[in-house]
């Protein structure tokens, strides 16, 4: 179903902007949801992909949801309610050209502690720890969009500098699809930062 997702991308309304060494593409889809992708201009790697979807009752969504990349929010010290403490593990997806990659920082336990497994029935990957300190269940939306299977043998796990790195190698169909998206984006005229026309009526 690679073509279906590609068609959705093609039919979406797109705006492109080069800023701070990143090529930022904004998509507005037919159902009014928005998506922003940011590519590094040097190697065309995907740095950020975030979504803004409509609330259940209509009305604008309050914030962006990050699929790839990290949300840089200034966390104020004096919060009213509760926030996850900064000493907790932080889960971030950071892709490379050939693979999907997740980095979980602030995880000091040795490599044997972790168990990363694929559950094929609900198409998700689970990270478990034998000392019951960390647990995370996540999906790969990219593969879901293309309806590609999840396979255990594609997963590699590494641990260094208090960080657990889970790598999932992209299948060939995925790579092909991404190449086509890149071709499509190259056709677009990117606006340089600063020369945005501002017509005053």
């Amino acid at each position: 179903m690679a073509s279906a997702w590609l068609e959705t991308l093609k039919s979406a309304e797109k705006t492109c902007l080069v800023q701070d060494g990143r090529r930022k593409v904004h998509y507005t889809f037919r159902d009014d949801s928005e998506m922003v992708e940011e590519y590094d201009t040097r190697n065309n790697e995907l740095v950020v992909r975030k979504w803004k979807k409509k609330g259940t009752f209509g009305g604008p969504a309050e914030r962006w949801e990050y699929e790839v990349g990290e949300q840089m929010v200034p966390t104020s010290v004096e919060t009213e309610s509760l926030v996850v403490s900064s000493s907790n593990p932080i889960f971030v997806r950071k892709d490379t050209k050939k693979s999907f990659q997740w980095r979980i920082r602030n995880l000091p336990y040795p490599l044997e502690t972790y168990d990363v497994s694929v559950n094929s029935d609900d198409r998700s990957i689970t990270i478990r720890t034998s000392n019951k300190k960390y647990y995370k269940k996540f999906t790969i939306p990219d593969l879901n969009r293309l309806n590609l299977p999840l396979e255990q043998k594609q997963i590699k796990v590494a641990h260094a500098n208090n960080t657990l790195i889970v790598t999932y190698e992209k299948p060939a169909e995925m790579m092909e699809m991404e190449r086509q998206v890149q071709d499509e984006l190259k056709k677009m005229k990117a606006e340089k930062d600063g020369d945005v026309q501002c017509n005053q009526s």
């Binding site: 009213e80 309610s81 509760l82 996850v84 403490s85 907790n88 478990r128 720890t129 300190k133 647990y135």
Partner: peptide, 24 residues
């Protein structure tokens, strides 16, 4: 002045520390 606090919650699989604000 403002109180500060920490709350540790766990499930059978994991544990997380939360920083608490005044209202909480």
């Amino acid at each position: 002045g403002a109180k500060v606090g920490k709350l540790t919650l766990k499930t059978t699989e994991m544990e997380t520390i939360y920083d608490l604000g005044q209202k909480m």
